[in-house]
Computed example of a mutant assay.
Amino acid sequence: MELDLKDIPRVKTITKEDFIKNYFKPQKPVVIEHFIEDWPAYEKWSLDYIKTIAGDKIVPLYDDRPVHHEDGFNEPHAKMKMADYIDLLKREPTKFRIFLWNALKEIPQLQKDYSYPDFGLKLMKGLPMLFFGGQDSHTFMHYDIDLANIFHFHFSGKKLCILFDQNQNKYLYKIPHSLITREDIDFSNPDFEKWPALKHAKGYKTELNHGEVLYMPEGYWHYMKYLTPGFSMSLRAIARHPKNLGKAIYNIVVMRHFDTLMRKLKGQKWIEWKNEQAFKNTQKTLGQ
């Protein structure tokens, strides 16, 4: 048995009007296959190129170890020179990933390689983020704290993307006071005996190739698995739906600080309680 996942619709290219009407307004994902061929990045951006221009930069690395109460918010698990990290990616599979790496700040010359596309949404120009991963490395299923509209541009190799909208929360073993699901679920090959509610979840999937753009609507859950070593860049636009904007403000102003406080007060017991609640809350939706 597999997850109930539809293929994300694909278009060769798209006008601003069609994007707003067919994907943004109904909040549906789409892959745009040919949209950035005029960017210098389309031809230039490869692992070797990044190694050439950013090899001496020390980069923060993350793996798939479970969250621990002593971990700070987005605190890296290791650090390495970018040149050494790219050598590692090309040499062997590794769990180490880079995420939320601010390209503007770290390597200003990269700005010359792309432009801000006009999708009809105001993109946040200070926040182009780069993400890197080794073969078979993956992110936990999560959604972004600000519930932004995300445009995910993939470079080099292939990447599996699985998405769910917020209406599927009750089936996903969502961790309370958090933005992730249970970390011990493998969404690329889930154990339905252990996680039976996942049988009822309805989502989307696609494999991204070099130069393709994935639009993820506001607050969509996303799981990313690198099928080959590669990297991506995300551009984002603020949540426009009032409910999502409200959730985003709550997450940033209240939820994040509450969770940090409870980790300090209760330690690992807080993490364990949240994991138990995720299971109990989800099983309740099945009447179990």
Rank of each mutant, 00 (worst) to 15 (best):
M1N: 12
D4V: 14
Y23V: 05
F24N: 12
K28R: 15
P29W: 02
V30Q: 02
V31R: 03
H34K: 15
I36W: 07
D38N: 13
W39G: 02
Y42C: 06
D48C: 09
Y49S: 06
K51T: 09
K51P: 03
H68A: 12
H68P: 05
H69T: 10
N74P: 09
E75L: 04
P76Q: 05
A78E: 07
K79D: 13
K79C: 14
D84S: 05
D87V: 10
R91G: 09
E92Y: 05
K95D: 15
W101F: 05
N102Y: 03
Q109T: 15
Q111L: 09
Y114T: 03
Y116R: 00
K122R: 15
L123R: 06
M129S: 13
M129H: 13
M129K: 14
L130A: 07
L130T: 11
G133I: 00
H138R: 14
F140W: 10
D144R: 04
D146P: 10
N149Q: 14
F151C: 01
F153E: 00
H154D: 03
G157M: 07
L160G: 06
C161M: 13
F164C: 03
Q166E: 05
N167Y: 09
Y173H: 00
T181H: 01
E183N: 06
D184K: 11
I185C: 00
S188F: 08
D191M: 02
E193A: 08
K194T: 04
A201P: 08
K202E: 01
K202G: 02
G203N: 00
G203I: 04
V213Y: 00
V213F: 03
V213C: 08
L214Y: 06
G219D: 02
W221Y: 02
Y223Q: 01
S232M: 07
S234W: 00
L235D: 01
A237D: 07
I238H: 14
N244C: 09
I249D: 13
Y250D: 12
N251H: 08
I252K: 14
V254D: 08
H257P: 01
D259M: 01
E272V: 10
E272K: 12
E272T: 12
N275S: 09
E276R: 12
K280Q: 11
K280P: 11
N281S: 02
Q288M: 15
